[in-house]
Amino acid sequence: MVTLMDKIVIKDLYLQYSDQTESLRGINLTIPANQISVLFGPAGGGKSTLLRVLNRLNDLTDVRAQSGEVLFDGLNILEKSVDVINLRRKVGMVFATPVALPFSIRRNVLYGLELAGEHRPRVLSEALERSLTQAALWDEVKDRLDDPAVALSGGQQQRLCLARSLAQQPEVILLDEPTSGLDPISTSKVEASLQELKQEYTIVLVPHSVQQAARVADMAAFFLQGELVEFSPGKRLFTNPRDKRTQDYVEGRFG
């Protein structure tokens, strides 16, 4: 039995974009290490916003006000003095729409290591094969690693992005609807590899459906209009939710 460690502790997190919408309203949430934590709920609930807080990607958007704490291994990453580059190396992110950089497949996967100044060929080739295998893409691309990445299908690009975030071995992976463009077979491949990946990584996932949430969640958080309604172990939340609103949504009775 692995001991459950708190990887990320979110305390009273508020966030407001410049157009006045309060996208996160007092979130308190503890994300355990080596588990899959799922953030789900209707559109506009603040799931993507929260993911972007976790690796400070919101620095690039127009955030008007933000308060609260996000403790990453005990350190508040919202503080100005935090080394964001280092944080982003430790917290990888896969976006809902896959973005292949205009490079070869190889350079895409190794781009994070390139940024970090890694040159040793052995390290690079090891990272390339490992991360592509973990993303269930190695067999499909191993013979054309130097082809342009944009030539891959949408589903392949999505797994390429997963591989790219895995290559520099982060501690946490944030996945925003990583299977939204995938067929059922690739989806189950990715879900299976997530189960393996959680041995090594802490995973925070925004699923593309309630069904997927129920399939993969160790812990599940239900978000509604910027509020965290309920956060429970997945088994409990999907069979026996505490909150009426969670129950309505999970059972598909949402207005």
């Binding site: 580059i85 190396r89 973005v99 205009p102 781009y111």
Partner: peptide, 26 residues
């Protein structure tokens, strides 16, 4: 595309690395 910059930064790129490696060549 802005998304190229976001990806590069999310992987730990500095602004200048992003400009030099992704934006300028494009």
């Amino acid at each position: 595309p802005q998304s190229f910059r976001v990806v590069s930064v999310s992987l730990g790129g500095t602004r200048w690395q992003t400009v030099r490696k992704v934006v300028l060549p494009e």
